[in-house]
Amino acid sequence: MSDSSRHVLVHADDVTKTFSTPAGDVQAVRGVTLSVRRGETVGVVGESGSGKSTLARLIMGLQPCTSGRVLFDDQDLSTVKGGDLRRLRRRMQMVFQNPFGSLLPHYSAVANVIEPLRLHGIGSKSSRRARAIELLDTVGVSEHFADLYPTQFSGGQQQRIAIARTLALEPELLVCDEPTSSLDVSIQAQILALLAELQQRLGLSCVFISHNLAVVQRLADRVAVMSHGKVVEEGPTAQIFDAPQDPYTQQLLSAVLPVTA
Rank of each mutant, 00 (worst) to 15 (best):
M1Q: 13
S2L: 13
S2N: 15
D3T: 01
S4A: 13
S4Q: 10
S5A: 10
H7Q: 15
H7W: 01
V8P: 08
L9T: 03
A12D: 06
D13V: 09
V15E: 02
K17R: 15
T21C: 13
T21I: 04
T21L: 15
T21S: 11
P22T: 07
D25I: 00
V29R: 05
V29Y: 10
V32P: 12
S35V: 00
V36E: 10
R37A: 12
G39I: 05
V42S: 09
G43L: 07
V45G: 01
G46I: 07
G46E: 13
G49Y: 04
G49E: 06
G51W: 08
G51V: 05
G51D: 12
T54Y: 10
T54W: 09
A56W: 04
L58E: 12
I59K: 02
M60C: 09
G61C: 06
G61F: 01
T66M: 11
F72Y: 13
D73Y: 04
Q75Y: 02
D76S: 13
S78I: 03
T79D: 07
V80Y: 04
G83M: 05
R86L: 12
R87L: 08
R87G: 06
L88C: 11
L88K: 04
R89L: 05
R90I: 10
R90L: 14
M92R: 07
Q93N: 14
M94H: 01
V95R: 03
F96L: 09
Q97L: 07
P99R: 04
F100M: 13
L103E: 13
Y107W: 14
A109M: 12
A109V: 15
A111C: 01
I114D: 15
L117M: 14
H120L: 00
G121M: 07
I122N: 07
G123R: 06
R131P: 01
R131A: 14
A132K: 00
A132V: 00
I133P: 02
E134L: 04
D137W: 02
E143P: 00
E143S: 15
F145Y: 11
P150N: 06
T151V: 11
F153S: 05
G156P: 14
Q157H: 01
Q159G: 04
A164S: 15
R165V: 09
A168K: 02
E170C: 09
L173N: 08
C176N: 12
C176F: 03
C176S: 09
E178F: 00
P179W: 11
D184Y: 08
V185A: 15
V185Q: 14
I187R: 00
Q188I: 03
Q190R: 09
A193E: 15
L194E: 12
L195C: 09
A196S: 14
Q200F: 00
Q200A: 14
Q200S: 08
L202M: 14
L204R: 06
S205W: 09
V207E: 04
H211Y: 05
L213F: 11
L213R: 02
V215W: 08
L219C: 08
L219P: 13
D221V: 05
R222G: 14
V225W: 10
S227K: 15
G235T: 09
Q239G: 11
D242K: 14
D242T: 04
A243D: 14
A243N: 15
P244I: 05
D246L: 11
D246I: 05
T249R: 04
T249E: 08
Q250S: 04
Q250F: 03
Q250A: 03
Q251F: 09
L252F: 08
L253P: 13
L253C: 05
L257G: 06
